[in-house]
Design a protein around this nucleic acid. Structure first.
Lengths: 348, 348
DNA sequence: TCCCGAAGTTCGATTTAAATG
DNA sequence: GCATTTAAATCGAACTTCGGG
């Protein structure tokens, strides 16, 4: 590897001058262009690349952001990661990707590794989250800008980017209602998932406002497990349960897309056609929702945008840190969007 | 941040001794346990964490691996990334994730960034690859162990991990054949994708060996674009084209699962039932293949395993490098597995 | 005083060579 | 010579300080 000293020798100047010139340091102001050019040419000729580690050792900047995902296999994550990657690329940052697998010990070990590597910020994708983690304490202690996607922390210095679950759920139920559905079944999310309550609130509020009766027998809760893909099986078996109860319903609103897929599978297995006999609506708009034989109507979360916003928040945090500004946590709540496809229609 | 010198002061020894003890260096052999304990206690008490950058500056080890994906939104990537992550975690390595978006300039910039960061190895996930990249030259020049997943490089020092496409395609066609299908349509992959040719070879060989006629009018090529999800639309429109031709076929073999999804959509739209009237088989077994209304029969690539094997290959390369052993490139070809689900059955 | 450039210190650890009893 | 410990050099860049013109 060629060092700055070799560039100095090659160009005939000292390494100090080389450093000034190549970094456009303030002190390079008075250095004549002739000198600058000779130095730059020498650096280019030798294919000089500054040693990131030596540089970091001096100025503490790593241009690295730690990204923690709670479960990469969750299809919800991919577009978020893409959004993060895009935004970081533009800012010349590199992501270190860690996947916590919803395990506390992995979370702690990875957090330690990321802090050891002096990640300048942390982005946590915490949608399907079963841990009661204390990123808060840790990141506060280590004072590194942190943004969580998919979960809002009430207090503390951790920023958050979430979708407006209440508005989203309301849009979904409004869609079904305006199609004429009155007997609607619900597969609610697992209790301990943060998204569950606000979505249900949205539904209840809409129901109250429009005099829609919610039949308690048509409301079931997902059990919830460590695996985000388990929503499929759960949606499947809960829907079978609904059908067995022989309570009429013309539409089904699922907690998320995976659950909706399971519901559709169960309905199809029972000889019930979607959407002719039962309309189904999901939430998220994961990548393959449009590919289903009957493309899924759903509420889209702007995943790539959420990733990009998280990056912009922590980038701002990093700047603030360097300029010694105090910066309080930001909490962004993005609007979801109803996407009408083939799995919903008016009841006959 | 607490430094080794503070630990030295706290424990009453020099930083040299501290370093020896905490790293279990050979020279720590003669250091009495009493000393070791005092040092370790001091380090623990002060919550000492060695500065990764100072350490790397000395011994050149970063415990970092660069991961380059050509398109993260390709569902094929996710399980591979998971496999890589798992294996790296166990080896106490951290991945820097980069997504090339199938763009040459991104590829080059990211490669440079990864080399700047002294990634100890490179893993390239190059399934849906349109670039004629020269990782080869670069990695040779920089002499860092490199493994490619999804594409085999004939010569050079780059290792590879691929699935046996020929065997996989043969398994697929054999499945259809043994079900009794004789009029089979094919949606072949884009010309410039590496997987296309071997899969077609597998099909042709099987056909020849079993006297199966391949009707040229039932063979169409995917156009191929930069976007792996475009396979859906292509599969859809090509299948419509097939149906328009009014040439009978009882089964359709798609290049990959996305294409198969498109085909199923088109068939359904045309009022043709899957699998009763036309069986459909895919390739890959991406995450949601089992979720389709009629779960897809397909040929599974062992993605997580491929990721893990790539890691073990580069890990071996890293060791070899440190022990100054010469190590030639490895080429692993894994066996795919037929997964029979609901999209295939015997013709009526 | 202003301009230009160099010498030397610093970042935090590892490691060589050497000094003790 | 052996067991135990350490001073000093090193990694590569950035930056402070200083000197000559």
């Amino acid at each position: 590897m060629v060092t700055i000293r070799e560039v100095a020798k090659e160009s005939g100047f000292s390494s100090t001058t080389v450093s000034f010139v190549l970094n456009n340091a303030p002190l390079a102001r008075y250095i004549p262009d002739a000198t600058k050019n000779r130095i730059r040419r020498a650096a280019h000729k030798l294919r000089y690349r500054p040693n990131v580690f030596a540089r970091t050792l001096r100025n503490q900047r790593t241009r690295t952001v730690g990204v923690m995902v709670f479960d990469m296999t969750d299809p919800y994550c991919t577009p978020i990661l893409r959004g993060i990657e895009c935004a970081l690329y533009q800012a010349s940052f590199l992501p270190i990707l860690t996947d916590v697998h919803n395990e506390r010990c992995r979370f702690e070990r990875y957090l330690e590794m990321l802090l050891d590597r002096r990640a300048e910020a942390l982005i946590v994708v915490a949608n399907w989250l079963f841990l009661n983690i204390d990123v808060l304490g840790d990141s506060k202690k280590n004072n590194i800008p942190t943004a969580m996607i998919g979960r809002e922390l009430q207090a503390g210095s951790v920023s958050s980017v979430i979708v407006d679950n209440e508005v989203g759920a309301q849009a979904a139920i409004e869609h079904l209602f305006s199609l004429g559905h009155r007997q609607i079944a619900f597969l609610r999310g697992p209790r301990h998932i943060a998204d569950t309550a606000p979505r249900w609130n949205g539904i209840r509020n809409f129901a109250k406002a429009h005099g829609l009766q919610i039949d308690a027998d048509l409301v079931l809760d997902l059990p919830g497990s460590g695996n985000p893909l388990s929503g499929f099986e759960a949606g499947c078996s809960l829907t079978e349960e609904l059908v067995r109860r022989k309570r009429q319903f013309t539409a089904l609103m699922a907690f998320d897309d995976m659950t909706a897929f399971g519901a559709i599978r169960a309905l199809t297995n029972c000889g019930i056609r979607v959407p002719e006999q039962v309309s189904v609506i999901g939430f998220d708009d994961i990548a393959h929702s449009s590919l289903l034989t009957s493309a899924l109507t759903t509420v889209r979360q702007p995943m790539p945008e959420m990733g990009a916003i998280a990056v912009s928040i922590v980038a701002e945090g990093i700047s603030a840190l360097h300029e010694k500004r105090r910066l309080s946590a930001m909490h962004r709540k993005l609007l979801p969007q109803l996407v009408v496809r083939d799995s919903t229609c008016s009841p006959l």
